[in-house]
Write a protein that binds this DNA or RNA. Structure first.
Length: 350
DNA sequence: AAAGCGGGGAC
DNA sequence: GTCCCAGCTTT
């Protein structure tokens, strides 16, 4: 298809998206949006993006913030390493680049949380440079349009896709072209039920010609998910709940979560291990939380605290009112549990 | 219930 | 380089 980029640019100008909040040239805004858009769809990102930008309007304010402040605004968005890396990168930009977002692709990609595709997107949208991107939308468009078989996560397939992406890149109008690739993948060339009749490549797209839209791109081989279980304790003392800060890396790294234990263990014994004496409490409904590599079944128990031992207060532990807890950097299932608690002072449902 | 979505870090 | 990890939304 000799005129792929010409047709895509024309389509983007006529039918693409022109009102996204990050369609600006401020490198900070472009960067923030690209990080949030990794693994996350536009509609989910928009409110997080607006809140984040209102609180941290520029690189300097982000660099000066504490990790807790940053993660509180990331809470619910998932993939929390993105938030930690964003914060670390802001500090690097202050320390190593005089507070100015770097323009060179090698310097951009050297920042934590930025890989080849994200670096290219920033270079294009913020600085008008000529680099190819290859995000999930683009992979889908290219696999279908050019009939590329195999799972795109596989190294050989990904290499072909990068070569194709670079070969298609126009000399001019790279911004409209790149936005067009993203828009096409997001609005017409969807994973399911693609709108082929409206596509600028209808008639030429190999997947459409061969009726293989549902087969391309090929799905990865999936294994059965292992399952884990955990007990979460909601320890209530004078209207406050105990939260523990999780280790910096791993699941929910750096977030504030409920204390956990083995569901087979006695809940009062678990509480005692945390340095509190608790009265008998209530088990709440079990909830299931899906990760990409395992399923977690959570058994929450609410316990009234009768006496605080000396170990109840320690670094990495806080007692927060329910309202303050909901303002902290919580994992989504913990937020769900706390939101489901009866209001303080209201009698529990019977 | 299953699929999709980029990059970091351990090996 | 190759694996493994990470957390939500949508279908």
């Amino acid at each position: 298809m000799l005129d792929f980029n010409v047709r895509l640019i024309a389509w983007q100008r006529a039918q693409g998206r022109h009102d996204l909040p990050w369609q600006v040239t401020d490198p900070y805004r472009v960067w923030l949006s690209e990080i949030m858009l990794q693994q996350t769809q536009v509609d989910t990102v928009i409110p997080y993006y607006q809140r984040f930008l209102a609180r941290f309007p520029d690189i300097a304010s982000l660099a000066e913030a504490t990790q807790d402040e940053v993660m509180a605004l990331w809470s619910g968005l998932g993939y929390y390493a993105r938030g930690r890396n964003l914060h670390a990168a802001a500090r690097q930009i202050i320390d190593r680049h005089g507070g100015v977002f770097p323009r060179e692709i090698e310097a951009i990609i050297a920042l934590p949380g930025i890989g080849r595709s994200t670096a290219s997107a920033i270079a294009v949208f913020a600085f008008g440079q000529r680099y190819a991107i290859l995000d999930g939308n683009v992979k889908r468009v290219l696999c279908r349009c050019f009939g590329i078989d195999g799972w795109p996560g596989e190294a050989a397939v990904e290499q072909r896709l990068w070569s194709q992406a670079e070969a298609l890149l126009p000399v001019d109008d790279v911004v409209a072209y790149t936005q067009g690739l993203m828009d096409l993948g997001a609005t017409l060339c969807r994973r399911s039920r693609p709108d082929c009749p409206a596509c600028p490549f209808a008639g030429d797209c190999l997947a459409q010609r061969q009726g293989r839209q549902a087969e391309l791109p090929a799905a990865r081989a999936r294994k059965a998910l292992p399952e884990k279980t955990t007990r979460m304790l909601i320890l209530l003392h004078a209207g406050a709940v105990l939260l523990e800060k999780r280790p910096a890396s791993g699941i929910w790294g750096g977030l504030w979560s409920l204390p956990e234990g083995d569901p087979a263990d006695d809940v009062l014994a678990l509480a005692r291990r945390l340095g509190v004496t608790a009265g008998s409490g209530t088990d709440l409904a079990m909830l299931t939380h899906a990760f990409s590599h395992y399923r977690l079944r959570i058994f929450p128990s609410v316990l009234p605290v009768e006496k605080l031992g000396p170990r109840a207060e320690a670094p990495g532990r806080v007692w927060l009112s329910l309202a303050d807890a909901l303002g902290a950097a919580l994992p989504t299932p913990v937020r769900k549990i706390l939101l489901g608690l009866p209001e303080p002072g209201t009698p529990a449902e019977s």
